[in-house]
Simulated scan of single mutants.
Amino acid sequence: MKKDLPCIIEGCDRLRAGKGLCKMHHSRLRRSGSTDDPVRRVRPEADRYWEKVGKADGCWNWLGATHGDDPGGGYGVFFLTSSGFMQAHRYAWQMLNGTIPEGMVIDHTCHNRICVKPEHLRLATLSQNAQNLRPGARRSKTGVRGVVQRKNGRFGTRVTHFGVIHSAGTFDTLAQAEAAVIELRNKIFTHNDADRRQVA
């Protein structure tokens, strides 16, 4: 019987299944039109990355997976071809600027954690990153970052820098306290974009 003969493909010693081909080569021919070994196509990592980015006039938002349980949303996550994952904004920085120096982080100047637009990212120390917070304060009862209301109804101010607490004084109105605490942060912080935009 012809089925007892080897496959007609040179070097293949499997038995024929149909059209002179073994099951494997016959299956390849049906699927792809060729008996050649299909090359596993691994798309370039950068291509996979950029197709998960929503480019807009403002921020370029990450459309892929995110992590973190912060109420404001987590950072974007990009799964690497090799193994593991990297935060999407850190991958964008490294792709365009090289390795992130030890002890440095990538700061979002736009305060949008899922933004990966290169112009919205910059190198910063942990301290500088902590200085560049979005306007307002999610955990403050007054709604103003660095301002607390005292029992007597007046508004106190405080700014922590390198573990040292600084005060801009106590004020009768929330507006006065807010202006004073912004001025103080602008004096002692280097990465304080939100406050600088408010007084510009």
Rank of each mutant, 00 (worst) to 15 (best):
R14G: 08
R14I: 00
L15S: 01
A17M: 06
A17K: 10
G18Y: 14
K19M: 15
K19H: 15
L21K: 04
L21I: 07
C22M: 03
C22G: 06
K23T: 11
H26I: 12
S27L: 15
R30C: 15
R31P: 02
S32V: 14
S32C: 12
G33C: 07
G33S: 02
T35M: 03
T35L: 00
D36A: 15
D36L: 14
P38H: 02
P38R: 08
R40Q: 14
R41H: 15
V42M: 09
R43V: 14
R43K: 11
P44T: 03
P44A: 08
P44S: 09
E45L: 05
E45Y: 04
D47I: 02
D47G: 12
W50G: 08
W50K: 11
E51S: 14
K55T: 05
K55Q: 07
K55L: 01
A56Y: 01
G58E: 03
C59H: 01
C59W: 07
W60M: 04
N61P: 12
W62S: 00
G64T: 03
H67D: 11
H67Y: 13
D69S: 15
P71G: 02
G72K: 10
G74Y: 01
V77R: 07
F78H: 10
F78V: 03
F78T: 06
F79C: 13
F79E: 12
L80Y: 09
T81G: 11
S82Y: 10
S82V: 06
G84F: 05
F85Q: 15
M86F: 08
M86Q: 14
Q87P: 13
A88G: 10
H89M: 05
R90P: 04
Y91T: 01
Y91G: 01
Y91E: 03
W93N: 01
Q94A: 12
G98P: 05
T99P: 11
I100G: 07
P101C: 03
P101Y: 00
E102Y: 10
G103I: 04
G103W: 05
V105G: 06
V105D: 10
I106Q: 02
I106S: 03
T109F: 11
T109L: 12
H111D: 06
H111K: 00
H111E: 10
N112M: 06
R113C: 09
I114M: 05
V116W: 00
V116Y: 02
P118I: 09
P118G: 07
L121Y: 09
R122M: 09
L123R: 09
A124D: 02
T125E: 01
Q128R: 09
Q128Y: 06
N129K: 09
A130Q: 13
A130Y: 12
